[in-house]
Design a protein around this nucleic acid. Sequence first.
DNA 1: TGCATATTTGCGTCGACATGCAAACTTACC
DNA 2: GGTAAGTTTGCATGTCGACGCAAATATGCA
Lengths: 114, 114
Amino acid sequence: MKPQEASECCGPIDDLLDAELFKALGEPTRLKLLSCLAKCGRPCSVTELTECCAVDFSVVSRHLSLLQKAGVLTATKEGRTVFYAVRYKHLTEAFRALAKSIEDCRPKRRSAKK
Amino acid sequence: MKPQEASECCGPIDDLLDAELFKALGEPTRLKLLSCLAKCGRPCSVTELTECCAVDFSVVSRHLSLLQKAGVLTATKEGRTVFYAVRYKHLTEAFRALAKSIEDCRPKRRSAKK
DNA sequence: TGCATATTTGCGTCGACATGCAAACTTACC
DNA sequence: GGTAAGTTTGCATGTCGACGCAAATATGCA
């Protein structure tokens, strides 16, 4: 069987392999922001999060916006301040589902029993 | 507590947020290659995998090499042919661990309010 | 040795993106 | 209204990476 023909042999891995999500997480500054936000355990403002990394606050603003678009964070505006928070449940479920779909693709060794 | 000071409140999320891995997965062509390889369920050669996507085989070779460096694939040379295979177990465990560390960071709602 | 197959590597090009700065925009407070 | 604080956006710059092509390398076979 050719690789490109194997389209139905396992779970919805294509839907779970989200390039936008991985691209969003594949940048050190954004990863640092996510880490700070996750460990802090509460919503933080752009200004607060700027203290986490050594870039301009405008850069932080863009990174946070991108992480929100990718489904990693939520944004809530209160007055002049925007609070970003980690989408814990969403991320946890996404990675668990991905892990399972990869696991399900793994060919089981066919020994005596099926 | 400032975001950058919250360093010990939860699991080893920093070690699990691997920029190299996410960067490797944050590219559509590489994601397609991984998907083809995972669904195929057996090791495939560079030439075979070139049929999966619309780029030159030299590009595919570079992508596969990068995916190997990132810990996504293994490479085994047999004669002139290099067979790439998905590291199912490794990826599954990595994503499960990441999911757990994110989940552990999630603040539990405190019964009485403090 | 000579040739074919499979893959890697060097190189040039082009587009995407991270960054900083300044300006614009939004909201709160006087 | 006017000013300050918080954030977003426009713009210019520099870097990185995906791509194709050609050349080089490695291996198998006659």
